[in-house]
Design a protein around this nucleic acid. Structure first.
Lengths: 194, 194
DNA sequence: CAATAAACTTACGCGTGCGTAACCTTACGT
DNA sequence: ACGTAAGGTTACGCACGCGTAAGTTTATTG
């Protein structure tokens, strides 16, 4: 039933989606949808909450703080891309439909804020491990870069079912870990032993 | 009159915006809006076209093919961030409202595709200048990374008026040109002489 | 096997907002 | 002055879709 809602919201967007279609796809009548899941807004929020929980779970399951920073980063990215690949509709609802639509944006942005905090903390720890320290706004900018680049590749992944989550994560590592300069010179980052 | 529309669409989104409000903010009556700019959809598309033209103009005005690749990249980014800083409502309408809303997404995605092509060509040229060649999908991934990271920082910039376009571009250069690895070690990329 | 409650459906009231018909008013030629 | 047209406004028809009242079937209990 939630699955049906996610599917319809993904295809049509919040406004264009109508409750009759969701009910029909669920195989029940409209008043049942209202009885179980409340209004259209409440239903949408329920979808958002389930999908964002899945996303964050996938990120954190991939976190192993004992590994070196690049491995941690790669694993986090792979977890994220695996969620996107496995739940394309969920991704679409979260980032293409809800992200900028009041009042749903607050839910999504809260989740994005959480993700940003996690990454910021990791970066900070990695810098400290080098015996250095960086301005917090520089760390923030780096985290924003990582998240934005991930979202962009995620969108691409969502539209290319043939692509593999691990390969996508590796591509992103090459871009953001080594940097464009190294890449132009032919250097490559490779995932270590699993 | 278009300005008023962009402002309202930016604040409310396409669906929540109503023509009465746009008319009132324009200082004319509703039938006049219809007379000059057509239906709500046509009006929205007109906004999109103006803003996307501005954005692309800003990107290309900043292009100087004689400079080394990193300088070209930085100038392109700065041009882009300057557009965002100067037209926050326009940015909001393009990327937060229209990007995933049929049938407007086709307009925005066409523009994004153009930008991606420009960047892809530049990257390709830079790789060739090093006497190397890369798989096209790797170049594509790098371009997607650059664009995604730019969008993420642009969104951040749009909500932080105190921030400077040039500084944002420099931050992004540090992240994507040098790479996170260099950055953790304390290296910094700096814009050359202007 | 009636009486009643639970589970579900059909059919509709109602608000909202797009797009326009009908109406007004100011300028201009005759 | 007066017909007429350009340029404007007010007021409304209409479709759409959310949420629910009223009605119907299926289960349950004395």
């Amino acid at each position: 039933m939630l699955d049906a809602a996610v599917q319809v919201f993904s295809r049509r967007g919040f406004h264009a989606a109508n409750m009759d279609e969701i009910a029909e796809l669920s195989g029940v009548s409209k008043p049942m949808v209202y009885a179980y899941l409340g209004t259209k807004e409440e239903l949408f929020v329920a979808c958002l909450q389930r999908e964002s929980m899945r996303l964050v779970d996938n990120l954190q399951a991939a976190a192993d703080p004992t590994l070196p920073p690049d491995q941690q980063l790669w694993q986090g990215m792979r977890g994220f891309f695996e969620f996107v690949g496995a739940h394309r509709d969920g991704w679409s609802v979260l980032y293409r439909q809800a992200r900028n639509q009041h009042p749903f944006s607050v839910v999504v942005n809260a989740m994005r804020e959480t993700v940003l905090e996690v990454i910021t903390d990791r970066l900070d720890a990695a810098v400290r491990a080098e015996g250095r320290q960086a301005k917090s706004e520089d760390i923030t900018a780096m985290a924003l870069t990582l998240v934005g680049a991930s979202e962009s590749l995620a969108d691409w992944l969502a539209d290319h079912p043939e692509e593999d989550a691990g390969r996508t994560a590796t591509r992103l590592m090459n871009a953001v870990w080594l940097g464009a300069e190294q890449l132009l010179r032919g250097e490559l980052w490779r995932p270590g032993q699993e």
